[in-house]
Amino acid sequence: MSVSAPAIQAVGLRKEYGSKVAVEDLTLTVEAGEVFGFLGPNGAGKTTSIKMLLGLAEPTAGEGWLFGEPIGKPESRRRVGFLPEHFRFHEWLRADEFLDLHARFFRIPARERSRRVDELLALVGLSESRAQRLGTFSKGMLQRIGLAQALVNDPDLVFLDEPTSGLDPLGRRMVRDIIGRLSSKGTTVFLNSHLLSEVEVTCTRVAFITNGRVRRVTTLGQYEGALIECELEVGSLDDGLVDGLRQWSSRVDVDDRRRLLRLQLADRNVLPEIARFVVASGHALYRLAPRPVSLEDLFVSIVEGGDA
């Protein structure tokens, strides 16, 4: 397919289990090279969404493509790696055999396979356990070998479903480093995680999903177009000021006592306009302090507020 096709494209993907709707509407586009966070409370439909994209669950409705290939077709998974949430593997295989086997499904030639297996074992810090059976592995080791497995075909798109759930802080840092490396190579990463701090440092963009529907997709932190929060300290407060500010921010929190206003802005380019507006409307402006919205605040406001 064309080189410019997005890594992931989903249009109206829906999954029902009987009368229960697990995913109501998954519509999103992830461009090649992005590190994309997929966030939501438990039971929001995150894992089911990944399963649909990877052909493990057939959508009840909707369409999707991975690099332009329709989901569900074997061809759509050729450039894809996947670390499942339940990282259970054939425990009777040795670590190196396990990686070799999975590489064979991608038709990687034998010599390249053995080089790749060595590399990956080193990458996840399991070189010394290569001859050990997976049945003897700890939870953290299984997650590491699972991550290595997800990279065995040097994929262009990796789905990581809670990749650090079984790891200690060192293991988490390892995963973060690996994601960073993948990203700098241009690999697209689709990260499903509960750990917002982790998502905050690794992801460029995130989608929030609640009750099986994508509520918001936003750019993070230092990146262009990130959502920001802005605190204004003014000399006096009145309704005209508050109402006027609503043209930039649907939500205006007012702290009368300290004469503070809190705004949520989609774009930092409106800051000078806001300053001009406050001054022009006859109010003294003592402070205008923008800061990136913390992911946690955003998460809570979206999950609690339905749609923020």
Partner: peptide, 8 residues
């Protein structure tokens, strides 16, 4: 899951 998500 890891088997069925291979290109087969």
């Amino acid at each position: 899951q890891t088997l069925a998500t291979k290109p087969l």
